[in-house]
């Protein structure tokens, strides 16, 4: 049900290692290239943001645990390229293929330098018109469903962390209707529905909260919630 990426609240990770504000953004040259290859291949339009996240979460557990951040990105991109038919396994293995020399059918979609600024500044908004009526309004008490799981695809992508499953909170903000990752990550359509910021007292989530007045806010889709 859960995957290794769902680590909120986990014990055993040791101290956070802050970095100075003047530290370089990229620590290795290949980090730069990994980020850029990820963004450029994304603009080929063969997968969406949710599929991309799901590909990183789907790395084998030992890989996820040991890969550095950009290794996860580049591993996921290689998997997406093959799973979506853009490249073949033979391409990745460096084996000659008969198609070499012929133009790739997607070559016309390659992101060119002159288009980069436009693509990055347009972004990819996820608000949509939706025919799903909002069930909740700010102030209302709700409970996050338990277990935290994709209810469309068993073992599939979801944005509900396991630490919030079953907890009681209240609606803090209504964000309008957004694309539902649980559906969109699996090619089942955008299925937009209302999204809410839901606030939970720390004592609802943790056995020994640091302070009873502390709170955690999560953005949760309507289908993750029930009235409480």
């Amino acid at each position: 049900m859960t995957r290794i990426h769902d680590m909120g609240g986990r014990f055993g990770d040791g101290p956070v290692q802050p970095e100075g504000e003047d530290e370089p953004i990229f620590h290795e040259e290949w980090h730069r290239r990994a980020l850029a290859v990820t963004l450029a291949t994304g603009s080929l339009g063969q997968w969406n943001l949710d599929m991309s996240r799901h590909a990183r979460e789907s790395l084998a557990v030992p890989d996820y645990a040991t890969f550095s951040y950009y290794e996860k990105w580049i591993g996921a991109v290689a998997d997406l390229l093959v799973d979506n038919g853009v490249l073949t396994r033979a391409d990745l293995a460096g084996e000659d293929s008969p198609a070499d020399g012929a133009a790739h059918p997607l070559a016309g979609r390659a992101l060119t330098k002159d288009k980069v600024a436009g693509v990055l500044s347009r972004g990819g908004p996820t608000t949509r018109e939706s025919n799903v009526a909002p069930l909740f309004e700010p102030g209302q008490a709700v409970r996050a469903l338990r277990p935290a799981a994709n209810r469309l695809v068993d073992g599939g992508h979801t944005r509900m962390p396991s630490y919030v499953a079953g907890a009681r909170g209240r609606i803090l903000m209504a964000h309008g209707a957004h694309v539902l990752p649980d559906s969109n990550a699996h090619g089942l359509g955008e299925a937009p529905e209302p999204l809410y910021a839901v606030i939970f007292p720390a004592g609802e989530l943790w056995a020994a909260p640091e302070n009873p007045d502390d709170e955690v806010v999560l953005d949760l889709w309507q289908s993750y919630l029930e009235p409480a």
Partner: peptide, 18 residues
């Protein structure tokens, strides 16, 4: 290298993103 050879990415676009 594979993606560049197939015309699926443009190294100059990567430089621009970075």
């Amino acid at each position: 290298t594979i993606l560049t050879r197939k015309g699926l990415i443009d190294p100059a676009a990567l430089d621009e993103i970075i």
